[in-house]
Design a binder for these strands. Structure first.
Lengths: 210, 210
DNA sequence: GCCCGTATTGAACCGTAGTCAACGGTGGGG
DNA sequence: CCCCACCGTTGACTACGGTTCAATACGGGC
């Protein structure tokens, strides 16, 4: 804030500071309403420094998004000791927790993308893929199983939609949404198993209303 | 291409031409890689004309997205004479048809957004809302029913995800995806009805595998 | 206390979004 | 058939903001 004399940070500290600030700015205004100067000013740093750390504006934006995506991914890692019917619920609750606590960051992440820039799309899509992979592994499927991948990816879409709905107008309570999502997951998996009976996967009982 | 002398179009024709061209350009390259000059050149028109028809670059982009969204909306209007268990399937098939036939346009629409520009987000979100509304009306619910709105909106999320998955790597056949989505919808609606028993809505039988 | 590596700067460059007053094609009236 | 007026259209001009790069100064190590 005060035009402090040039202070020297470690590379990692500076990077982290810039990423955090960038995410906040990009969350509250649109991409092309945030200028490089804005970012530099807010960070108390020269424009050139941003170009030193990141390739350019686009690259900086991508890095910010990547940062948020990574946080979300780590945050939703459910405890592997929990048995499966409940583990999905735990992961789901963690997901909602993250979204509620970092509301603007979460929405910025979901609404990220510049035009249809493949690079940005890839960052968030890769995170989804990792979540899918992790989920499949927890069901005992390491090798690719197209039907189950599709089912899980589809479910992620539902989760994101429900979460956005929840954040925008909080009329339905969270528990209800979680129940709905688990029911949807069950439906998806039933059909997936029908379509790919060879899959090493045993369907449990349908989720009950608590 | 040929530097045709200044040709005069009707307002509507010109608008339509520019919107169609814009969508194509924005579909193949990212927002900030497409300059106003590019668009003007490709259209064989001066830059100023774009500013005459649309407020600016952002507004033009929004208009292009809106155009694609509208086309999708109209395309997925299912025949109201079909009874309900089959109507959802018909709407779903129409949705997939559109996505397959206009692959790049569909993906551009789904990946639209500039940073997290609220205006762009609103355009595509409004289209989703309209689809939701139409779906609820077809179930006999005109007035707002938060639980069912959430359920339907969630389902749209699943549909979009499944559709993108389908377009990207076509490993699971379309019929399978449709079956999964219908199962998910059934699950969502079962829980929705539990959460809001007053709703004037009778659940049919679960979808069968053809 | 000096010195060197490197984090950091700031001014200059340039592509591109946005503005505006003038131009000319087209269609209607004499 | 010609002229006029309206409005779709133009292109040069401006200013803003992303990008570059040679120069600068901070701070740890000797």
């Amino acid at each position: 804030m005060t035009a402090a004399a040039r202070t020297r940070f470690s590379v990692d500290a500076r990077r982290a500071q810039l990423l955090e600030l960038g995410l906040r700015l990009f969350a509250e205004r649109a991409y092309d309403e945030v200028s490089i100067d804005d970012i530099a000013n807010a960070a108390g740093v020269s424009k050139g420094l941003l170009y030193h750390y990141f390739g350019g504006k686009r690259a900086f934006y991508v890095a910010c998004v990547e940062n948020a995506a990574e946080a979300l991914f780590e945050r939703t890692l459910a405890d592997p000791s929990i048995p499966e019917p409940e583990r999905a619920r735990a992961g789901l609750e963690a997901y909602f927790d993250y979204a509620e606590e970092h509301e603007t960051a979460y929405m910025a992440l979901m609404r990220s993308g510049i035009g249809n820039d493949p690079e940005v799309a890839e960052v968030v899509e890769r995170t989804r893929t990792r979540i899918v992979q992790r989920a499949l592994a927890s069901m005992g499927m390491e090798e690719p199983r197209p039907v189950f991948r599709a089912a899980t990816r589809t479910w992620i879409g539902a989760v994101e939609a429900a979460c956005l709905e929840h954040l925008e107008h909080r009329e339905v309570d969270r528990g209800g949404l979680v129940q709905m999502l688990l029911a949807a997951l069950y439906g998806l998996l039933v059909v997936a198993k029908q379509l790919d009976p060879e899959a090493p996967f045993e369907l449990g009982l349908p989720p009950r209303a608590d």
